[in-house]
Amino acid sequence: MSDIGYRKIIVDGLWHNNQALVALLGLCPLMAVTNSLVNGLGLGLATTAVLLLSNLSVSTIRHWVRPEVRLPVFVLIIASFVTAVELVMHAWFHELYKILGIFIPLIVTNCTIIGRAEAFASRNPVLASATDALAIGFGFTAVLTLLGASRELIGQGTLLSGAHLLFGEAARAWEVTVNPDYPGVLLAILPPGAFMGLGTLIALKNLIDRYFGQRGTETAPAPTPQPEQA
């Protein structure tokens, strides 16, 4: 346990074990809120916050919790943090909170969080667990943001619309309109667009993996990724 490669934790969390693209976890909120960049980013950050807090606490208490009550305890911890995060968002990001609606409390059901608590934090030291939480969280956030951005761009031809919801009034001007005459492909911001968008992102990731995988074998034997030491 002492020689955990932080580099590997980070790369796995962001890419090889990306929760949205590889593990296909947390898809319900992912599909539902990614109709704009800001919504995606907002939910991604909220999820990351919960993930970090839950990983930290689970890792801290990992030696004291009996196996038979482990899962209920984890759920308790996660639910508490989610409620706290929800309250905080309600207080300081009111409009975004209204838009994200039910998906904030639903973070509690996001399998990523209980999954990381169980698979990683309950077996690894605190610092490693925090790293894992951040890597996984940012990996998830990146997908949400990317999906939100592409759906927003295709759907209504803008980027960063509603940035003030997250970054304050000053960000109102950040909104980019690519082409004012763009009619917008509504399908992209409606639910079917989420499925197609996510499918395309998964395909893209596989394509990139294959491309580098092939190139790697052609030039030099790339270090084969070790199976995760859990």
Binding site: P183, G184, V185, L186, L187, A188, L190, P192
Partner: peptide, 8 residues
């Protein structure tokens, strides 16, 4: 359906 939803 794509067209109808996107450009009703």
């Amino acid at each position: 359906a794509l067209l109808l939803i996107s450009f009703p």
